[in-house]
Every structure is written in structure tokens, then in C-alpha cells.
Simulated assay, not measured.
Amino acid sequence: MSTEDFDYLLNKIKLQITKKDTVLRKAISAEERFAVTLRFLATGDSFQSLGYLFKISPQVISNIVPEVCNALISVLKDEIKLPKTSQEWLTIAKGFEELWNFPHCLGALDGKHIVIQSPFNSGSEYYNYKTSFSVVLMAAVDANYCLIYAEVGCQGRISDGGVFKHTVLYDKLEREHLEIPLDAPLIIDHERTLLPFLFVADDAFPLRRNIMKPYPGVHSKGSTQRIFNYRLSRARRIVENAFGILASVFRVFRKPMLLQPNKVSIITMTCILLHNFLRRSKTSSTRYTPQGTLDVEIEGRAIPGSWREDQTEMSSFLPLTRIARKPSMEAKTIRDKFAEYFNTSGKIEWQDKYC
């Protein structure tokens, strides 16, 4: 984070986190409170360790961190918002088509288990199939690695197949309250074919009219299914990079969080909002994600970003399980149409080399 952005955020939250001096002692300054919180998010150090560094008691730090995080959430809440109009969705879709050659894409979906310590008196409420305790983060990302939707706090015991159904995004999809643009034509075999706008996801999500996932199984080189999977993975890789950057920069995610679920949710949402803020900042974006951090492609050849070197240490971010589901015939047909498009008029030069 640049000095300018540090000062900007501090001025935004100063009134909310400043405490009054008393006759017995001086209050901890807003600058120190903000610095302690950022240090905790960036390193994941224990409150005891931070206490030695800042000369503040661990008990006080345990109150400072969630208080400052709540203040950051209140001033940065507009950094994440679902599009409210068809035109806003079309802007996102244009980004995916121009940058990742996937038309009609509204975002990349994924979810992660955030490992926590066993909460007090919770029984098996947060105990997941991976034999650990967790809360679940569900997110959708645009073509520029910024989150347009995030929901955190679902108990780890809920099956991965059911986690998505507990989200606001799923509810709005079901009720058709997302203002998704109407079906638009793509040219397939010299004919205009109407196809819907959709989200791309992996096998942990259902195949639906507005959610596309890969064809299951292994497919022969050059096959229609393999090319579709390649094109979908190029678009879906954006959300993998976003999670990778989060865990790489905010090292509080490197190990199980020794906090109660409500505080874990607050800290996670703060990191996500800061991620979007720093990605969009003119003075901090190149510091936050310097060249080489993200995956890049040169004529279709993928060059892994530096965040992938840290994957073995990301013990707090666990993937959702891939679950087999029986999709509708309509969803299958839509996937087949997109696959046909990627093999005809939507073909890109280098896909034959890697498919």
C-alpha cells in the first residue's frame, strides 16, 4: 500500500477508531491502531507477537483488530457490489470477451473453506468433510481480478453442494432479480444463435442455464469438449488468481485462524475490500500486484504467476468438493452450443496447440 492510500484510509476511519485520553493514560493513537491491524492482516502474526512489536497488550489488540476492520468495511463497502443494471453486466461481459475470449461471461465463480479453530460450544456445526473446522467464502470475480460479489460465514458442516444454495447470489439467480441481459446472438456455422449470459465455474457448482462448468472426464486432443474446457478454464482462472493473491498478500490466510467465526468473517471481508481498493488504486496497484504476480498468457502459453509458488503454504484456503449432478437438457444444449462456437467462428489462433 502506498503512503497516499494509507493516509487516505486513515483519514476515512479516524473518527471511528480514535479514543479519548484520560487523566491516567494516553489513548492509543488512530495511526497505531490502523498499523497494528494492517500488520495482522499482512503477516497473520499472533496477538502476542504483535504485542511485543507495538508494545500493546494482546488483549487490547484483540479488540483493536475487529474494531478497525469494521471501520474499514463501513468506508470501503462500495468496493464490492453486484451490477444493478443490464448495462453494468454487459460491461463485465465485454471485459471477459476482450481479455479472455469468453463471450457472454458475467463473472468467474468459486468458493473456499477458511480453516478456523474449533469455536466454543459449537459441536460439529463448523466441522467439515476435510476433518477441520471452517467457514466458507463464496465469490464472483470480474475480468480484472476484482470481486463483484462475496459472501462469507456459511458453516463448514454444510455440504459443498449446498453452500451455493445458501447464498444471496443463488437466491437472486433463482428469482431472476439480477437484471441479467437478455440472450444475445453468437455466430455459429454462419447462423445467429441466441445464447444466455452466464457465470463460469468448476465441478463444485451445478450446470445450469446461467452457470457453465467443464465437460467431465478426459477428452482426446483436438476434441470439441477439450477445446471448450480449455476456453472455460482460461476465464475461470481469474477467480483462482484472485484467491491466490489474497492468500499471498494477506498472510493471515496462511494458517488456521485462532478466532471465533464472526471475527473470521469480518477479517475476511476486510481483506476482500482492501484487495479491490488496492487493485483499483493508481498509486498502489503496481505495489499490490507487481509484474509477474498474476498468471499471463503469451499466444496461449500460460505462464504461472508468482503467487502459485506460495500455494503449499496456503493451509487456510481449502477448495470445495467437486460434486456430480444431473444437469438439465437445456443446460447441456447451451454448453454444446458454446463448444461449437469455440470450434468455429469463435476459434482463437493458438488453441489447437494446447488442445
Results as ranks from 00 to 15, higher is better:
Ile80Gly: 02
Lys81Ser: 14
Asn101Leu: 01
Cys105Ile: 05
Glu98Ala: 10
Tyr52Glu: 04
Asn101Gly: 00
Ile92Glu: 07
Leu106Arg: 07
Ser49Gln: 14
Asp78Glu: 13
Leu41Glu: 10
Lys77Arg: 12
Val36Ser: 06
Pro66Val: 09
Asn101Ile: 02
Ala108Glu: 04
Ser49Asp: 14
Glu67Phe: 02
Ser57Phe: 06
Thr43Asp: 11
Asp78Pro: 02
Thr37Ile: 07
Val65Ser: 15
Cys69Phe: 04
Cys69Gln: 09
Gln48Arg: 14
Ser86Arg: 04
Pro103Glu: 09
Asn101Glu: 07
Gly44Met: 08
Gly95Trp: 09
Lys77Asn: 15
Leu53Asn: 10
Ser49Glu: 13
Leu109Phe: 06
Ala71Asp: 11
Tyr52Gly: 01
Thr43Gly: 07
Leu99His: 10
Val36Met: 11
Arg39Asn: 14
Pro83Glu: 08
Val60Lys: 12
Ile80Ala: 01
Asp45His: 06
Gln59Lys: 10
Ile92Ala: 04
Trp89Tyr: 10
Lys84Glu: 13
Leu82Glu: 12
Gly95Ile: 07
Trp100Gly: 03
Ile56Met: 06
Trp100Glu: 04
Glu97Phe: 08
Gly44Ala: 12
Tyr52Arg: 02
Gln48Thr: 09
Phe102Asn: 03
Lys77Glu: 15
Leu53Tyr: 11
Lys55Gln: 11
Ala108Pro: 01
Asn63Glu: 15
Phe102Arg: 03
Asn101Val: 03
Ile64Glu: 14
Pro66Met: 13
Val60Gly: 00
Ser74Pro: 03
Leu90Asn: 09
Thr85Pro: 03
Gly107Lys: 12
Leu109Asp: 08
Pro58Ser: 00
Lys81Glu: 13
Lys94Pro: 02
Gly51Lys: 02
Ile80Asn: 02
Val60Leu: 09
Leu72Asn: 12
